[in-house]
């Protein structure tokens, strides 16, 4: 995507968020969420620069905020961001084996993206689904009662869906 296109998109997103917001001062984090969703799970530097200009803020301010929050990424991530819960309830119910199965099936380690650009593997804080631990989320979908077999099946299904 060229820079002009990014600038145009960011401007549209920013105007959109501003029009929805009842208060003036709090659009930055909302806008960053939308930008990230739009550009495929990360915030390109050009988008951050454009946003700084639009909001009349120094670029350092944009990065100060976006690097504070773990859910924003400055590096491109896969189409599917897999977030595995690493909290106690998931840990004591077999979370480790699930993590191993994920790494093996995907062939990557944490904070890496598969070569085909499909999957990024990340840790997550508690997802609040402890009743069906171990749990992971793939983008906005949660998957519970995980076992190594189930993890493999889920990944294969997503891969299969992409191949079609």
């Amino acid at each position: 995507m060229d820079v002009a296109q990014i600038e145009k998109t960011v401007k549209e997103i920013y105007e959109q968020v501003k029009s929805e917001s009842l208060e003036e001062g709090d659009v930055l984090i909302n806008t960053l969420h939308r930008i990230q969703d739009h550009f495929g799970n990360f915030i390109p530097p050009e988008a951050a620069e454009t946003l700084a200009e639009l909001m009349d803020l120094p670029l350092s301010k944009i990065y100060e905020v976006l690097t504070f929050y773990t859910m924003f990424s400055t590096r491109p991530r896969g189409k599917y961001v897999i977030r595995v819960c690493e909290s106690t309830p998931c840990h004591v119910t077999g979370g480790k084996a699930v993590v191993e199965a994920l790494k093996e099936t995907l062939g990557i380690d944490f904070n890496q993206t598969t070569e085909d650009g499909l999957f990024t593997l990340e840790f997550s804080s508690c997802l609040g689904l402890c009743g069906v631990a171990p749990v992971m989320m793939i983008n906005d979908m949660a998957y519970g009662n995980l076992t190594p077999e189930r993890v493999k099946a889920i990944i294969e299904e997503l891969r299969g869906g992409e191949a079609e």
Partner: peptide, 12 residues
């Protein structure tokens, strides 16, 4: 009175 949602971004 009106309510808006604000979404966090992963900071405990």
């Amino acid at each position: 009175f009106d309510i808006e949602i604000r979404i966090g971004a992963g900071a405990f």
